[in-house]
Simulated scan of single mutants.
Amino acid sequence: MCGGGGAWGGGGGGGPRDFAATVDPDVVVIFAPDHFNGFFYRQMPPFCLGVAARAVGDYSSLAGDLAVPSGLARELAGAVLAAGVDLPVSHLMEVDHATAQPLRELFGSLDARPVIPVFVNAAAPPLGPLSRARALGAAIGQFFAARDERVLFVGSGGISHDPPVPALDTAPAPVAERLVSGRPLTAEEAERKHTGAVAEGERLAAGTSDRMALTPDWDEAFLDLLATGKLTELDGWSNEEIGRHGGGAHEIRAWIAAYAALAAAGPYEVGYRYYRAIPEYIAGFAVTTALPVS
């Protein structure tokens, strides 16, 4: 897989699955990247909110429709726009393992709870500053802070990792064409992508890969900033600095958006934190849970 980890915010305690069960959310808002499975260069927004969505089932993740509350999703999108954050909407959003895997691990299926998916671009340059991801999360959190729903905010993505995701400027012509057009992968291409990622992970674990090594110290420093609520300090992290920890490290934007959404309700406290660098999976993995102090 290309990346992993997540930040869950709401109410409850224990491990992530127990946490989600205790929260018993009325709605889940999941901030997640995409790996050229649903969003392509023919139109590449920095963010997008799904009014309706389906998972494509890449890397053996669940496929099918998400239970998106369309009316609430449209109302949320309007409120975020009114707050000054440009947020396109999609009535036919396609999401990949970055969305499907957390929903499976937390709830067992894609449609067990109402879910509003929010795409956060982390793979397709140009990328905006981290402050925009924070502003997006804050606007979404402010919308729900004024309402009565029990909300679980989920941020999905790896920390340091450099997966073999093709770049438009250097990809072979057929691959570059797909990065733009969004042509579905053939079964052969999907299998080659899967086995190639597995082989690259084995090489990274053996020390023979050309991919960037994982940087656990940087990962832990990022988690420390989230835990202490110092989200504005992340505004000073440049895209160049983030990229030195792998192309996939930009997925921290989803974490920042989720924590900013939680912070809109006031100070919070991280109750569960797990981290492990897993070179075989080409990713620094982490899971945290957090609650409003009040």
Rank of each mutant, 00 (worst) to 15 (best):
A133F: 01
S109N: 07
F119R: 11
P126H: 08
L127I: 01
L72T: 11
F107Q: 08
G71N: 10
L110Y: 05
L81N: 12
A122M: 03
V95C: 14
L72H: 07
G108C: 00
A79T: 08
A77N: 12
D96E: 00
Q101D: 11
H91T: 13
R113P: 06
A124N: 13
A124H: 15
F107P: 12
A133H: 03
D86I: 02
L110R: 14
V118W: 05
D111K: 15
G128Q: 10
R113W: 01
V89W: 04
Q101K: 06
A124L: 06
P102G: 05
A82K: 14
E105W: 08
A133I: 01
A112V: 09
V95L: 10
L92D: 12
P88M: 02
V80Q: 10
L103A: 00
A123G: 04
V95A: 13
D96F: 11
V89I: 08
L87P: 12
R74Y: 04
F107E: 02
L130N: 13
G71M: 11
A100R: 00
A77T: 07
R104C: 01
D86R: 15
L72N: 02
V115H: 10
V118C: 08
D111Q: 11
A73M: 09
A133Q: 05
P126Q: 07
G71C: 09
